[in-house]
Amino acid sequence: MKILVPVKRVPDPATTIRVLPDGSGIATDNIKWVINPFDEIAIEEALRIKEKQGSGEIVLCSIGQITWQEQLRTGLAMGADRAILVKSDQPLDTLAIARILVKVVNDEKPDLVILGKQAIDDDSNQVGQMMAEMLGWPQATFASQIEFADGKCKVTREVDGGLETIAFPLPAVVTTDLRLNEPRYASLPGIMKARKKELKEIAAESLGIDLAPRLRIKKLTAPPKREAGRKVESAAELVQLLHSDAKVI
């Protein structure tokens, strides 16, 4: 099975994010950049599918600046076969990202696209679903289990109030939730091998797609800060204060 895994570069989730005073963005000094954690789960799942089936190809794709090569190399070191970087320096909205990825899908013709349910920087949770619609493919978001049988894909999804199972034929788009798997670390031999793997660059502008953003961020502001309250000495004091002071019980 050929699997395409779109990958986004994001600030390490443990990084403290600071909004710039002029509201134009976030401070990017001292930020460690990583693969979006949900995309890392997607790479891991692709590797497991390939290992289980004994054959296949895993292609990574990122859309961003030249520095994004670092995260693609990490994904290749985990075990993906090759990578595509669609280079773009301008801000792109989710529709434009989905359109570029659909173009890559039409060129590469994978059987399955797996990607994170959301990127932890813009928290949009849109691209997988948009791709599925543009391709006319089934979608399974928030996957916690993926199985293949009788030419069909069966996915267990994390939904409100429980787990839902849906089935559909391939090709399809699946987005990952937290409990799907625990991603592996890149091994030293993996890192060595990754250096020799193909990383193709394409200019976004060369694809003939309308990239003009239809959603624009006018400014960023820091949210109101919540102040720390008081420390209490005992459970008795806590219950008393919740009753008489906060009046919540």
């Binding site: 909205d93 529709l95 949009s124 849109q126 679903q129 619609e133 979608q139 409100d160 239809r214 959603l215």
Partner: peptide, 24 residues
């Protein structure tokens, strides 16, 4: 609302309607 269904369905609709989408 951005429930599991809202998050699953609205982006698909946005693509189908060629509409931009703001989440959450």
């Amino acid at each position: 609302t951005a429930t599991a269904v809202g998050k699953d369905l609205m982006p698909r609709l946005a693509a189908r309607l060629d509409a931009p989408m703001a989440s959450d």
